[in-house]
Design a protein around this nucleic acid. Sequence first.
RNA 1: GGUCCGGUAGCUCAGCUGGAUAGAGCAUCAGCCUUCUAAGCUGAGGGUCAUUGGUUCGAAUCCAAUCCGGAUCACCA
Length: 591
Amino acid sequence: MSVVKHIQAAVNISLTKIFNQPFTEKDYQINQIKEDFKGDYSIVLFSLLKKTGLSPKELGDKLVDYLKRDYQNLFSGFELIKGFLNVEINDVFWLEILPAASNENFGSQQPSGRKSMVEYASPNTNKPLHLGHLRNIFLGWSVAEILKANGNEVFKTCIVNDRGIHICKSMIAWLRFGGGETPQSSGIKGDHLVGKYYVKFNEIYKAQIADLEQGGMSTPEAEKEAPIMLEAQQMLLDWETGKPDIIELWKKMNGWVYAGFDETYKQTGSDFDKTYYESETYLLGKEIVQMGLDKGVFYKKQDGSVWIDLTAEGLDEKLVLRKDGTSVYITQDIGLALQKYQQFGIDENIYVIGDEQNYHMKVLKLICQKLNIPNADNIFHLSYGMVELPSGKMKSREGTVVDADDMISEMISTAEKHTTALGKTAGFNEEELKALFHTLGLGAMKFYLLRVDPKKRMIFNPEESIDFHGFTGPFIQYTHARIKSIIRKAGEIPPLASCTQPLLPQEKTLAITIEQFPVVVQQSAAELNPSFLANYIYQLAKQFNSFYTDLSVLNAESEEKKILRLHFSVITAQVLKKGLNLLGISAPERM
RNA sequence: GGUCCGGUAGCUCAGCUGGAUAGAGCAUCAGCCUUCUAAGCUGAGGGUCAUUGGUUCGAAUCCAAUCCGGAUCACCA
């Protein structure tokens, strides 16, 4: 039970006794106290004045009488300022937290029996991953870990968009202009190679449009008639009819892309329990449409197309099956939603997808609910904002897309530069150094992308790049490494004895923050928002650094304090490490 | 145009289930390494919380309107 809950219980019971009517924590608020005031937590009395008919002073005095009398173990001090009853928590209470916090499961919950699926990454196979994908991947991975910490069984999944006109564009360009180039022959990573031909396609396409316009054709007409586009469309038809040489080419080029993606995933430390391919799922959902028709959820227009009317929900009419009977994007999503449930028995189904699909996801959920797909109420869209450049959106046409692989290697070499400049890595062998640079580079990048509220779009400045000081991953990693250094020097750490000297402010601050860790983990899970955790571990690291500067651990003023501070150190390191890990970031022992 | 999201320091972001004097980092300036790793610590300057009105004892936070920015409203995915 958290400190706040203890305070609430004490206040509820006292108020109920005093006024002879029930009170709950909903009747008032408890805040952590601001720095300049004395005490640890503040009970805000204003909202109680009406119900009790007393002035802040009268109510405060009365409440203090009861709390003082009945809860002397919990409270060690009171101060009433205006309508704020500031309470100080007994040192004993904070000390009691330490053993529980030392447990390596601190912050995690008991198994909940809930099964969650987190779908993330979900790339197209026509070009390499970019910075936006990284935000997606880091979010998805982290949320999955956070849900695990909350006791859920989690399945990470990825739906690969491996079919459609976009991949045909790369294919046709490669066929016409590739000269048999392969990743092996060119030394280019597979996804980049395929991306190169996607770009090539667009160049040719643009040139052909210009030519046609020269010949007097209108722009829309030219866009339709450009030979290379016609070829790509023909190829899509051939793919759909299963023409062997097209299928073979498609498999070959997608294979290159997968090998490339796998390498990137490996670099980022992400993985999936189950990968779905659209080429295998795009036909799903047709039966469901029939079922929906029977139920009257959908209706058929005269031309044979099938629709759902969502105008009552404030949305539009939405097509779910074309007049020629083929499925559209949402059809397969409905099918896949059901399949996910059937295969994994999931209680909740989370989609990490950019906010440009907010509408689509709203529609998807509504349709699933209307069709009574099990647990459709627990379809959640973890919607995140675009990553933009100071100049605006990333545009592939203008070559301003920040490539994921470039970004990663740049971060790693920046980490190397910083580390080398500081010259603290005596005793590292080459392999350890390499691992360290990777840990720090990725840590900086992940933290940078995860510390921001997912739903907000964020601006990435390539010029200033990602920092290693201040509110960053390496700052926290550094704090962790410094603590570990102390612990190594301390040797065997004696168990916590009784503490006779009062807690110093720097010690108490740590205790208060550490105590909140499980609540933060729960909150991050409930809101599907890792940024809470990022902010939290930053705050803890900062507080520890002050503690570290102001107080000595190994040369503490007494043996008792030394042991106490060692325990604080061990626990802080553990919480920092666990917090970082939940963000997908490793905590180095030395740096 | 309809719907949805956002607007907080020069820049990037917290705070938004209403509470005390709106906080961090970066950048700028001034200090701190004979003592556990200075990727650190301490301090200073920097704000019309987009605007206006409303609700309230109390509003950055809730409501309404307006302005600005973005997304979306395909027989694309």
